[in-house]
Amino acid sequence: MDEKVTREIFPRDSRKSYGLVELMKKTAPIVRKEPEDTVYVWPNLLMIEIICAILVTVGLMVLIQFEHAPLRSLADPSTTPNPMRAPWYFLGLQELLVYFDPWYAGVVLPGMIIVGLMLFPYLDVNPKGVGYYTYTERKFAVFNYSFGFAIWWITIIIGTYLRGLDWQWYWPWSNHLEHMNPALVTLIPLHLIFVNWFHVSEGVGKLFGDIIFIGYFALGTIIPMIVWKPMYKAMGLWRYLTFSFFFLSMMGVALKIVLRLLFNIKYVLVTPWINI
């Protein structure tokens, strides 16, 4: 029920027993529409469901005429296949291992995706756009979802089609049987670049990296607070901070992919315990 009862006629009282009827200031049981606008589930909806089920069954039957469930040779702990591919729906995560250490790509990031998804309804304060497809009324929310979904799919596609031996980058026209020379790509942590450019010590270089990392989150949180005040006001402090953390982390994944692919940067944040 999306409209609130303006005046409570019978205040709720736990000492009384109630029937299932609730009083609304409306003319019909279905708000805003006359009952005539409804149809019986039998046969209208059931028919649609049955047709869907038949179509899916036919689809599956057709599919398995062309493609069969794979079965390779018996499991053998002593021969590791190369490349070793996860099932396709996890290839996005496997591909992220190229850009992040395993504790982040394999554990923390998936956890954050799950928690972030669960929190989405609580972070999206825009009441518009329920019950119909719209982009214009909720551009930012749609952007966020699509961006995450796009990373997920693009990494799956890269993992499926563009990775070969040793998980190196292979174009469809490259020779997939020949090992790439790993020396072609040397990964460098960002702080060594600073060491080279500014002739500072490694410690100072690391400090630069840390400042960039923390600055990214700090500025990324504070600037929109000032520039898009109404948005911040609408969300409130905690909701905004939570959102900002997840948003910047997601953007961070994309940034790191670019840094790694274009500039061979290995880490931005370097600490004795964790590197990102």
Binding site: T80, M84, A86, P102
Partner: peptide, 16 residues
Amino acid sequence: WDQLAYWAVTVGAKMA
């Protein structure tokens, strides 16, 4: 319990 199965799960479990 083929190569595909064994190694996909080995990689996944390694993540843990």
